[in-house]
């Protein structure tokens, strides 16, 4: 049962991810990206971490994509311009894509993935309290660095967008 659901979500995620890069219209791409992120959230549920799934929807599907759409709608990319966005060497890209896929598949099925791993997480559902505790003890340092990172992003964005009287 779970396997069936996983395959469903995974296939849909991959198909929508392919659609994101192959569709010409940026809004359609954004829609597909939403679908893709949503499927990933569903896979998180299957992996017994509903918190991560919900946060994925909350932040990526709920907030980040809204900003993407906001920008896309303001940019108003017309069909003429879309042609120029797709590079001339796309044939090369299309040739490489199946190769990379093949390589990955080979590695995954022939390469003995996970032979080194020693501590595979158990199938228990992860409680929010546990995540919180880990975040503020074991992962406190990365957590704080991330907060500085966000501050930097904010400062940088404001500096670049700020109105200033600068001679050329």
């Amino acid at each position: 049962m779970e396997q069936i659901f996983f395959i469903g979500f995974a296939v849909l995620a991959i198909v929508s991810a392919l659609a994101v890069v192959s569709l010409r219209n940026p809004v359609h791409s954004a829609l597909c990206l939403m679908v893709c992120l949503f499927q990933v959230a569903c896979i998180f549920v299957l992996l017994r971490s509903p918190f991560l799934a919900v946060v994925q929807i909350f932040i990526y599907v709920g907030a980040v994509m809204v900003l993407f759409l906001f920008v896309v709608m303001i940019l108003d990319i017309r069909k003429v311009m879309l042609g120029s966005l797709v590079g001339k060497r796309s044939g090369f890209v299309y040739a490489i894509m199946p190769l990379v896929t093949l390589e990955f598949l080979l590695v995954i099925f022939k390469g003995g993935l996970g032979k080194v791993a020693s501590n595979i997480p158990s199938g228990e559902e992860v409680k929010v309290a546990v995540i919180g505790k880990e975040l503020f003890t074991k992962y406190l340092f990365p957590f704080e660095v991330v907060s500085i990172l966000l501050l930097v992003a904010m400062v940088g964005a404001i500096v670049l967008a700020k109105d200033r009287d600068e001679g050329a």
């Binding site: 809004v27 829609l31 919900v54 929807i57 909350f58 709920g62 709608m73 929010v128």
Partner: peptide
């Protein structure tokens, strides 16, 4: 009765906005 029910509701209800954005576009 999810143990993340509150977050789930906030997350999912936030998606409704796409109807408006896509409809408008």
């Amino acid at each position: 009765d999810m143990n993340v029910a509150l977050l789930y509701i906030l997350a999912i209800s936030g998606l409704g906005i796409y109807g408006i954005i896509f409809g408008g576009w």
